[in-house]
């Protein structure tokens, strides 16, 4: 049995910029939830989630030592740095944009995070 929960309940995150690329580090709130993130947050899924916000490819790196995944979202900052016209030209809020995603988790985990 499984249910859908918002990623924000399972993870916290921080994002930043490097040129026109955003990096989003997603960190499991509990070590035992890290495998759920590894399974759910595929490159394809993340690319679909951001849609038109990310024009380039998405890369994913695993950091099991930190219970974290690092994503690079290319061509996401309207040119980046001083060129970008975005309010968030440094990509600081892509972290919480990522955590809007809803993912499937086992029922017991869903019960725990909504308790």
């Amino acid at each position: 049995m499984s249910a859908t929960v918002q990623l924000l309940r399972l993870a916290h995150a921080r994002s930043g910029d490097k040129g026109d690329t955003v990096n989003v580090g997603v960190i499991a709130r509990r070590p035992e939830w890290y495998p759920l993130l590894v399974e759910a947050l595929t490159v394809d899924r993340v690319k679909r989630h951001f849609g038109e916000l990310v024009r380039g490819p998405v890369e994913r790196f695993e950091l099991p030592n930190l219970n974290a995944l690092n994503f690079l979202l290319h061509e996401a900052l309207d040119g980046g740095g001083t060129v970008s016209l975005m309010t968030d030209a440094q990509g600081k809020t892509f972290s919480t944009a990522m955590l809007r995603m809803r993912i499937e988790v086992p029922d017991d985990v869903a019960r725990e995070v909504s308790a």
Partner: peptide
Amino acid sequence: TEQLVYEMGDPR
């Protein structure tokens, strides 16, 4: 950990 992943590229 949040600071470690900040502005990270390939962590290796």
